[in-house]
């Protein structure tokens, strides 16, 4: 599904080139559950953003579903992204002014679903996550764990094939974190490819493969 060949990413800081990613080569198959680990500043989030097409590599080749991402036109890339990728953040990043229901609905608005389809899809998610009663609440009325559940529901409501999660349990206590991991495992078993960035060994263990990063390189 994902093929990274010799990916480099760098920033120029005061004349010297600081590498964020160095020579990353990686293949991820459909249905895998990958955990990316590493100390702060090792390039985990950058790698995730490159795979999520939010950021571009400076050198190297990135194939997503066998299509060279760099060579794609903005429009095609955007279409590919909308169809296949969902994001989950450490800080949830829900929209404060929107209710739970509306937050989950938002990505569907950008994917041209009809109103009836949208409501069916959102309701399905609410059911699946047991949040029907909370659908009219605003983010600040929810606990952190519940907010992250909304974040995940929002990420998968449009049925992406790849879920990218940047420290999804970072702001949660261990019990809430465990619930989220169980949910990820269940989603993975239903066929969703998941790549998560995490600090916790315990959470990393839920994945089928662990990739360790240090100073922008994959350690083996």
């Amino acid at each position: 599904m994902i093929a990274l060949n010799h990916i480099y990413k760098y920033v120029n800081q005061g004349g010297t080139r600081v590498f964020l990613l160095r020579d990353i080569s990686l293949n991820i198959a459909q249905g895998e559950f990958i955990s990316i680990m590493g100390p702060s500043g090792s390039g985990k989030t950058t790698l995730l953003n490159v795979m999520g097409m939010l950021d571009e590599a400076d050198e190297g080749e990135y194939l997503f579903l066998d299509q060279p991402v760099k060579a794609l036109k903005e429009k095609q890339r955007s279409a590919l992204y909308k169809q296949h990728i969902g994001f989950v953040f450490q800080a949830y990043h829900l929209i404060d002014e929107l209710t739970v229901y509306e937050n989950i609905e938002t990505p569907l608005l950008y994917k041209d679903y009809k109103s009836s389809e949208r409501s069916a899809m959102v309701c399905e998610m609410l059911d699946k996550f047991n949040m029907v009663a909370k659908k009219d609440l605003f983010p600040h009325q929810l606990s952190g764990g519940q907010q992250q559940l909304v974040g995940i529901a929002r990420a998968i409501v449009s049925k992406p094939t790849l879920l990218l999660a940047d420290e999804p349990t970072g702001n949660l206590n261990s019990q809430q974190g465990q619930e989220i991991m169980e949910l990820f495992k269940k989603l993975n078993s239903e066929g969703l490819t998941i790549i998560q960035v995490t600090h916790s060994e315990k959470n990393a263990a839920y994945g089928s493969r662990i990739i360790n990063l240090s100073d922008g390189r994959i350690e083996n």
Binding site: H93, Y110, K111, S158
Partner: peptide
Amino acid sequence: TKEVGVRKVLGAG
């Protein structure tokens, strides 16, 4: 800023 970022990640053009 944050909302715009979130919406873009969710696919907004």
